[in-house]
Amino acid sequence: MAYVHHSHDVHVRALEARVGDYVALLKPRVMSLVVFTALVGLLLAPGGINPIIGAIAILCIAIGAGASGALNMWYDADIDAVMSRTVNRPIPAGRIERDHALALGLVLSVFSVCLLGLATNWLAAGLLGFTIFFYAVIYTMWLKRSTPQNIVIGGAAGAFPPMVGWAAVTGSISIESIVLFLIIFLWTPPHFWALALYKQSDYGAAGVPMLPNVAGERVTKVQILVYSVLLVASSLIPSLTGFMGPIYTVAALATGAGFVWLAWALFRTTETVAMKKAGRSLFTYSLSYLAVIFFALLTDHAARVLGWL
């Protein structure tokens, strides 16, 4: 009886591990940011949406993001195997077959796009489909391995979710949703180049032409500073156009000042160890920066709806 019980426990743990590996294929941490920015886009959109339909829309966007992650891991299995940051992913670690990841990504892509179209409208579904295609094909299969501007252009994929959420409600694209896109689009280069500065050896070993490996550290630091300033400027557009009020404005100015300060501190570094430390600090800060900006958008909007502003 003890042996049977032990065998059952081993089987359950193995099953849980396998399910966990398939969940890892969907890049849940990336998915959480996608879902949050899409939710903000959906909630800020004028007109409102039935809560059930809205929940279905967010679920579809989450599934679409997961599909993109699975397709990315399928195609990048070779370079993931030589990078310390990715070597333990399910495919290079040998826990999941590449073909299984491809099948999962394709099935989830079709399912998410079709369900979103049926539940909301086909503009939102088309944007979601294009986002998956852009990330999996344009970025992963082409840009990532061919140009040091891979992150700049490829960043569009991560910037589309709030537009998808907005379109799910309104069936249209507006200047407000484009501004939400722009904030994420300009956030992406300094975020990933800060990471690339202290992970140069990984990208070099994988043959990925990230900017520090191709153009050098100084050019990268200059580009990070330039994009950081552009990012903060774009984050003030909602305030300048009257789309957002004082709560958002204060948050954008405060967090933006921190972002530019860290980018400036990184730019001024000359010694390798200090540069890697400054790069890590900016990368870590950038993760919370985007979350705070979009939370401030939501908070300011809620305050207006409740009549507090």
Rank of each mutant, 00 (worst) to 15 (best):
H6G: 10
S7P: 07
V12D: 12
A14Q: 14
E16V: 07
G20C: 02
G20I: 14
K27G: 14
M31C: 15
V34W: 00
V40T: 05
V40L: 07
P46G: 01
G48P: 03
N50A: 15
N50E: 15
I56P: 03
C60S: 00
C60W: 00
I61L: 07
G64W: 10
A65N: 11
A67R: 10
A67E: 14
N72L: 11
W74E: 09
A81E: 03
V87F: 08
R89N: 04
P90L: 11
I91C: 09
A93S: 15
G94R: 14
G94I: 04
E97H: 15
E97L: 15
D99I: 13
D99C: 03
H100N: 11
L102N: 09
A103F: 13
G105S: 11
V107E: 08
S109L: 09
S109P: 09
F111I: 13
L118T: 07
A119R: 04
A119M: 11
W122H: 09
A124W: 01
G126I: 02
G126E: 14
L128T: 03
G129M: 13
F130H: 07
I132P: 12
F133M: 04
F134W: 01
Y135P: 01
Y135T: 00
T140S: 02
L143F: 02
R145S: 01
S146C: 09
I151P: 00
V152K: 06
P161D: 05
P162Q: 01
T170N: 02
G171E: 03
S172K: 08
I173V: 13
S174Q: 03
I175M: 12
E176H: 06
S177L: 00
I178A: 13
I178P: 05
V179C: 00
L180Q: 02
F181D: 04
I183A: 00
L186R: 01
T188F: 07
T188G: 02
P189A: 00
H191C: 09
L195Y: 02
K199R: 12
D202T: 06
G204I: 10
A206R: 11
A206T: 13
G207A: 02
G207K: 13
G207H: 08
G207C: 06
L211G: 00
P212Q: 03
N213E: 08
V219S: 11
K221Q: 14
S228L: 04
S228K: 02
L231C: 01
L231H: 05
V232L: 14
V232F: 07
S235K: 05
S235H: 10
S235Y: 07
S239W: 10
S239R: 12
L240N: 11
T241R: 13
T241H: 12
T241G: 08
T241V: 12
I247H: 09
I247T: 13
V250S: 09
V250R: 07
V250N: 12
A251V: 14
A252D: 04
L253A: 13
G256R: 11
G256W: 01
G256M: 04
F259M: 08
L262G: 05
A263M: 04
W264Y: 13
L266R: 11
T269V: 04
E271W: 08
A274M: 10
A274F: 05
A278P: 00
R280E: 06
F283Q: 04
S286G: 06
L287F: 07
L290A: 02
L290V: 09
V292F: 05
F294K: 05
F294S: 01
F295H: 04
L297F: 10
D300I: 05
H301L: 06
